[in-house]
Amino acid sequence: MQNSPNIPVQPNCPDRRRTQNAVVIWCRDKLARYIFLAVAFSATASLLLIALFILKEGVPFIIKVGLKSFLLSSEWNPAAEKFGIYPMIIASLWVTLGAMLIGAPLGVAGAIFLTQFVPRSIMRIIKPMIELLAGIPSVVYGFMGVMVLAPFIRNYLGGPGLSLLAGSIILGVMVLPTVISISTDAINAVPKTYLEGALALGATRWQSVHMVILKAARSGIIASIILAMGRAVGETMAVIMVAGNAVRIPHSALDPVRTLTANIALEMGYATGLHRQALFATGVVLFVVVMILNSLAIAAMKRKTGN
């Protein structure tokens, strides 16, 4: 091999170190890609795991007892191995409906007012404030229900105070930030030109809002209400604290009720055997309901972006 020191070193010729390095770099890039792909399924895998284990614990019980008697029997007496969750289903339904009756109109009205009738500067203060309140732990809301709301209901409306009504009001307040936040985003996403077009035709602000903006933002607002419903159905601790927890079908808004979630949380601590399976079966019902609500909300959001 000839050695000629006069020829300048060409910096561009791929020396050994460079090519070796290239292989390492290439491998690292490929490895990173597969790690990221694997990690990307973590949320989906968790969801599947959760579904799998809740179903695995709960479904055999439902099959054993029979879906019909589990869902439609009114007697819940674990000691006597009677497991009917009909009263809890009814309670969850009413509490959620009540919460929506309070939370949805207030929340949507708040969103409309904040986006359409309030200067941007004030909106910039109030909206984050409301979102901040979404972070307040649910137990704190529940505690307020116990200390303030329940005595109020007992003194002025009658009944034990801890009741369907108290649960609905507390849940209604709790879902307000969700409804306001998502509805506001949906309304803000409506192009400004829609409103200007309506105003230019001589409509008042309110006419333009309810004829044009609400129509355009409808899917987003509906999604916010469905998501809030999901939260209300799933809320546990606050409801345990204020709803009274009696296993019976409510006849008035002042009766104490026990929801599906409360049933799980109250008895999970000491349940064993068949009783524990019954609680997981309650979880299955809850899981199915929430997944349906989720899918509806996601579909509603999709329609919004699709338009």
Binding site: T44, I54, G230, R231, G234, T236, L286, V290, I298
Partner: peptide, 19 residues
């Protein structure tokens, strides 16, 4: 992946507790 993430976001905490 997105559907899984969105659904997971809506699962109530008591279900997480059970799981």
């Amino acid at each position: 992946i997105r559907f899984g993430t969105d659904c997971l976001a809506g699962i109530p905490s008591i279900i997480f507790g059970l799981f």
